[in-house]
Simulated scan of single mutants.
Amino acid sequence: MCARWSVRLAVMESGITVTGTGQATAPADLLRLTLSVGQDASDVAIAVAQVAERTEAVTAALHGEGVAAADIYTSAVSVHPQYGDSMAVAGYRASHSMTVTTRDLTGFGRLLNAAVAAAGNSLGLDFLQFDVSDKAVLVDQARELAFQQARQKADQLAALTGQSIGSIAAVAETQGAVPLRAMKAESARGGFAADLAVTPGEQTVDVSVEVRWNWS
């Protein structure tokens, strides 16, 4: 992990207010995919049944590649009519989207190939994102850094003005996260090379603390 900081200072007669910003980063250790299975049919029951069958096959294939049941969950289900040129109902489309989480960051192509083999041309890759499993560690690190450096600058400014730091009057905090790079695709049709390279990147968390100290 790495971190950096910045501060903003305000001096008042009764004390000093310092705003410090700490930033912490960590390499990604999770990969999340959103896969969808879609099917068009003239009958709504057929469309739903085929999607259910292929979704079950994709789930089984992912289990076979080592993805735990707890790491696969439904994120969306839809069934809707499709209309022809005359606006009459021409058929129906059913779809089932699932979010898959894996800690094997090198298994992207392998998982997709397994899913494609199970669902064929009805499979789509809707979203891919790398993430960090424990962001609390990053938040703690950024918060500590922000406060430590705010105190350091407050002490420095107090010395420059002939004052000394006393008790803390108030503390406020804000947090922010810089999202990891995400990939989006319309379809996974045709399969993927097993060694398809994707770059995990890093997760960055920012914490700002505004601290007001009284003069002693």
Rank of each mutant, 00 (worst) to 15 (best):
F147D: 13
L105A: 05
V18P: 10
F130V: 10
Q39N: 13
E13C: 07
A94N: 01
S133G: 01
G120K: 04
D104F: 00
Y92H: 09
Q203P: 08
T174R: 07
A61D: 03
V77E: 06
A61T: 03
E13M: 10
T102P: 02
A26Q: 15
G91W: 02
A114D: 01
V116Q: 05
M98I: 05
T34W: 04
E65W: 03
T161Y: 14
I16T: 14
T102G: 02
S42H: 11
S187K: 06
W5N: 06
E56Y: 03
A52R: 12
V7N: 02
A185G: 13
T19K: 14
A188T: 03
A94H: 00
F108G: 00
G91M: 00
V132T: 09
S6I: 05
W215G: 07
Q82E: 10
A70S: 13
F147T: 13
D195N: 09
L112Q: 08
V18D: 07
G120P: 04
S133K: 06
P179N: 07
V44D: 11
K184T: 11
F147Q: 15
I72H: 04
T19D: 10
V100K: 00
Q129S: 08
H80T: 01
E144W: 05
V198T: 13
K153T: 14
F127M: 04
R8C: 01
H63V: 03
V209T: 06
L31A: 15
V205W: 14
G107N: 02
A68V: 02
S97M: 00
V116M: 05
G38N: 10
G84C: 06
R181S: 08
P81E: 10
L35N: 05
S78K: 02
L128V: 13
A182W: 13
M183V: 07
L35E: 07
K135Y: 08
E144C: 06
M87E: 11
G124Y: 00
N214Y: 13
D195Y: 08
D29G: 12
I168T: 12
A3P: 02
M98A: 01
A45P: 01
I72G: 04
A94L: 00
H80N: 00
E173T: 15
G20T: 09
R93Q: 00
G107M: 01
R32L: 07
V51Y: 06
A185T: 12
V100Y: 02
F147A: 15
L105R: 07
S187E: 04
Q156I: 15
V205C: 12
G124E: 00
T106M: 02
V18S: 05
M183L: 09
Q203L: 12
A170Y: 02
M12E: 10
A158L: 15
S86K: 02
